[in-house]
Structure formats: structure tokens, C-alpha cells
Design a binder for these strands. Sequence first.
DNA 1: GAATTAATTAAACGTTCGTTTTATTATTGT
DNA 2: ACAATAATAAAACGAACGTTTAATTAATTC
Lengths: 220, 220
Amino acid sequence: MARTTGSDGEKTEAAIREAAVNLIARLGYEAMSMRQLAAEVGVQAAALYRYFPTKEDLLFTLMREHMEGLIRAWNAARPAAADPARRLAAYVENHIAFHIERRHATHVSNMELRSLSHDRLTQILRMRTAYEKELRAILRDGAEASVFSVEDTGLTAMAVIQMMTGVIVWFRPGERLSISEVTATYLSMTMRLVGAEAHGATTTYSAPHGFGRAKDAVAP
Amino acid sequence: MARTTGSDGEKTEAAIREAAVNLIARLGYEAMSMRQLAAEVGVQAAALYRYFPTKEDLLFTLMREHMEGLIRAWNAARPAAADPARRLAAYVENHIAFHIERRHATHVSNMELRSLSHDRLTQILRMRTAYEKELRAILRDGAEASVFSVEDTGLTAMAVIQMMTGVIVWFRPGERLSISEVTATYLSMTMRLVGAEAHGATTTYSAPHGFGRAKDAVAP
DNA sequence: GAATTAATTAAACGTTCGTTTTATTATTGT
DNA sequence: ACAATAATAAAACGAACGTTTAATTAATTC
């Protein structure tokens, strides 16, 4: 009938965030009701409004923090001053690792943009553009140094990002391929895609892993 | 207050389909109301139910016909008996052209899967898997004939498809690049990605178009 | 241990949703 | 011309939605 034993604001808010990411990823933002979310958390719907003033505020918070985390991860992983190929390898590895680890949050950030108000959409897109700009700079530097063969920097950047982000659509942890196998394969596909084959016979940009030559299909 | 002058079932149904694709692509299936759709068509909401028994039936019809169209287009474009490289080129060109021409329908088919019932989702996914299987076969044949270097057929197929389908996210007709420029660039990226570089110096797999190296936006 | 504050419940509000029912008019077939 | 039918409008239905208000209890503070 009121406050329950052992209840705690911080725990409740964390539980709301986690349940919201999972529910929105599974059902979609519009299809998830606040009552459904509350039930998942084990609380009444009205309690949610102590932490997030509106449903859209909740969505925006999830998206903003996901984008901030992605940019923070890249800033931490970015090599200080390296050749374009190593910078590209770092970008790919960071992107794949981050997105595999946060499949659901990535799904939300990619699929629910249209449910944001104009201003908030702009904020999220600004962050995304800043992140993509890093890849374009790497590709441009590599093209100018003739270590990459790239016809169109912007188009190639979009293609590489979409290819990499697509990993969350089919990858399920612990199924056929390990995270490092997937990362290594995407890395070599990316390197071929941008025409990087300058250094020696078969340059390895990441820690080598045994490639199992598995033949079976990939779950949709 | 009832049937209006000049009203015609076939025209109304076609108008419903077109308006529905555009509205769902823009707002999302859940966010689009039947009243909104009816207003766009210029009709009362109840009139929609003469053509589609439920909202989900409407969505399913749009998706099914989109997938059928994609498979039909590929069956028409598929080369009779050709080497893997030419088959891959045909697959890429058909895929890009089809998806650019039907951006909104593709968006719907990719984004609204979770609004389908289990049975209908299965039907759509079956069609999608059959379509993707064609690409896997091409990649496998190419790998076995050593004209492609592909580490993992299934993973590469997913990567290529996601890279290509991603074109609808950023491409706007008549902006910077023409459709044939985009198609040619994606084709050469795909060929490098699968390690196809057997034939001569710079093999061209499609009809050549002037690559303008355009840096600025050029509106026709 | 009393007062204050934080966390939550229970109930309700107005709105919108997908859908159904019923009536009415335009078109078609004879 | 007249019956039959196809196409639509108008209105209503119950359910579910996001959100608000008010009351109630647990934890914290002094």
C-alpha cells in the first residue's frame, strides 16, 4: 500500500533502466507500456515517474548514455599517434566489442530514434555524427597516404559502420563463434574492404585466434 | 454521408498500401494509428477494414509482397550459369537497385518484424533466409573455386547484406551520388571484401559510369 | 523516539486506440 | 428503371494508454 520494506531509490532506478533496455529492445518503445515496465521491475507504474518524468525522458536517457559510453570507449581505445591501418583496426575492434557487449542498448539506440522529439533527436544524431567523423578521418588519412584504396570516404565509412553494427542482428553470445573470432573476421573483412594490404603477405592487426572454418548457417 | 462520388475499391486499396508504407516508414507501425492512415488516404477509418481485416494484416501484406518482389527480382536478374564473381556482381546490383527504389518498404520490412505474430514472422523470415541462402551459395562456390577468400561463408554473407541494405539509411535520391555511382561503389567494396581480385588489373563487373570524384552535393 | 523525508501504492483522469455496428449513398447488372 | 451490391460515413464500444493525485509506509535524521 505504500513504501515497501528494503526499497531503495538507487536500486529501483538501476532496475528500471535495465528492464527498460531489455523490454524496448524486445517489444519496441511504442509497444512497451509503462505498466509492463513497472511489472517487470516489480513496482507500480506511478513509481517510475519518480525517476523519469515521462516515457520519452526514459528513452532519451538510455540513448544518451549509450552514445556517451560509445564515445568514451573510443576515446580510451584510440591509439595516440599511429598509422591509419592501426587506427582503423582499433576503431573496428572497439566498435565490435562495444556493440556485442551492449546488443540491446544498441538496438534501442538504432531503432527508436523516431520516437524522440526533434531537439533530442538532434542531440543524439550530433553524438553519432561525431563518432562517425572519427572513422572518416581515419579513412581519409589512409587514402591520402595511399595505404587504403577508398573511392568515397563518406560512403565507405557508412558501409563499414553498417556492416559492423549489423553484427548485433545475428550474433548471439556463446553460439557458434566467440567474440574474438567475430571481431577478427570483421577486422580482416574491413581491411580488405578499404584495400589495405600494404604490409607484407598477411598482416595481422589483432591477436590471432584459431579459425574453425565452420560451415553451418547463421541464425536470422 | 456514405459512399462518395467516384470512389473505387481498387484505387482505395492501392492508396491505402502506398500511404501505409510511407506512414509506417516515417512513424513506425505502432505509432501510426488507423485514423491517421485513413486521413492520409482521405477516407474514414472504418473504410480501411473493408480491405484489411486488421492492422496487422495490413502490415503483413506489405511485408510479404515486398519480400516476394525481392525474390522475384533476383530470379529475373540471376545469371543462368556464370562464374561466382559475375553471380555475386548480379546479386549486389539487384540488391542495391531494389532497395534504393523501395527504401520505405525495405524500412518497414526490416524494422517492424516484431509487430508480427509468431506464425507470420516465421513466414517472412523463411523468405528472407531463402534469399540470403543464394548469397551464401555464391560465396561458397567462389571460395571453393578459390576466386574468393572468405573465412566464414555465413558471417560474410551477413556482413555483405547488412552493408548493402544500410544504403537506405543514408541514401537520398538526387543528392550527391547517382544510383549507378552508389551501386558501382558498393560493388567494388563487396568484391574487395570477399577477396575477389583474380581477373587482371581493375576488373569491372558492371556497366562503367563516369566516376566524378564529386566532393560537393550536386542536385540534378 | 518523534519529526521529517524518501519511496511507493492505489485509484482515478482524460485521451486515444483498434475495431464493430449500422445506416446511407454510388455504382452495376438486368 | 429498378433491384442488388459495393463502398463508404458516422457513431459508438470497451480496452489500454501515459500520467496525476492523494494517501501510506519505511527509512533517516536529530
